[in-house]
Simulated scan of single mutants.
Amino acid sequence: MSLPGHGRYEYVPITRRPKILWPGEKRLAVYIGLNLEHFSFGEGLGAELAPGGPQPDVLNYAWRDYGNRVGAWRMLDLLDELDMPATILANSAMYDYAPDLLAAFRTRGDEIAGHGRTNSERQSTMTEAQERAMITEATQTLLKAEGTPPKGWLSPWIAESPVTPDLLVEAGYSYTLNWCMDDQPVWMKTRAGPLLSVPYPQELNDIPAIVARKDSASEFADMIIDTCDEMLQQSANQSLVMGIALHPYIVGQPFRLRHLRRALAHVASRRDEIWLTQAAEIASHWTRTMPPEGDHLL
């Protein structure tokens, strides 16, 4: 029986991969994907702390806005304290709404990656022309503000249309964070050429863990610690990628930040064994070492 497929990549088990080392001869690359998101008031999509009533849903809108006004700033201090880099996944609407916040992460030298215009919309419901226009608008906003175009993209709500990977390559993107099928980067096929999928976690992600499954702050912190230690052990045989996906309106809450501090301090304490980096650096190193054509793909 043949099931419908996507045709973007082939099945290759993790046990049959080429050997690669990260910089410094490390075998585990770790990056933080910090989502900075702005939402429409009175309409559109948004995570919920509690079931929302008729619009305007003030409770959930204000809860999400806490992340931009307070939580993200506390997380910035924590990253500075631990000397940890981050990949900032930025809605382009953030540049109008909270430019000081983007400037603060820019000053740190963090990577700014594309994350649509706003998480109040989902690109999988758009026509191809609408989706192309949305990607162009978001990309141009980041380019104007940062001086260089973003290299990576994470779709709002991880939502894709059938042509999203094609449109990303056509817009100049070299990697995507949308696909969570592996612990190593994977080359994907598009009509415009190859696109690298860099692992972005859906388990080690505070929205599925805390909002959906209702895991506690302590449980989520333990997940980060256990994943780091287990993947370090697994990486003795092959180089791997560990991502940590965070949202300031969730883990920026004080009682959760206390446990996040414990987890990230544990990760930082193992910096001699891991490569603490950004998603773009992972993509660049993989592209140089394992380009989309070559004997290593056979």
Rank of each mutant, 00 (worst) to 15 (best):
A283P: 13
E219I: 04
P201V: 00
S92I: 11
P85G: 10
R69S: 00
K214M: 14
M223S: 08
A236R: 11
L298Y: 11
D183Q: 10
Q55A: 15
E146D: 08
H296M: 15
Q253K: 02
N68Q: 10
A145Q: 10
R69E: 01
S197Q: 00
L276K: 02
E230C: 08
L59S: 06
E293A: 13
F41C: 06
I224A: 10
L260N: 01
Q234A: 04
E230A: 06
R270S: 08
T15A: 10
S218Y: 01
R262Y: 08
R256W: 13
L232S: 07
S235A: 14
R122F: 15
R17T: 08
L257H: 02
E81G: 09
V30N: 05
Y175G: 03
G71N: 08
P292S: 06
N35V: 11
A133P: 02
A212R: 09
M181S: 05
L34W: 03
W286A: 07
T87V: 07
Y61H: 10
I158Q: 13
T127P: 03
S216H: 11
V241G: 05
V30Y: 05
T289M: 14
Q130V: 14
Q278S: 10
F255R: 03
A145G: 06
A103V: 06
G71K: 02
H247G: 00
A236K: 12
A47T: 12
E81A: 13
L21G: 12
L89F: 00
A86E: 12
M181V: 11
A133L: 08
A212M: 06
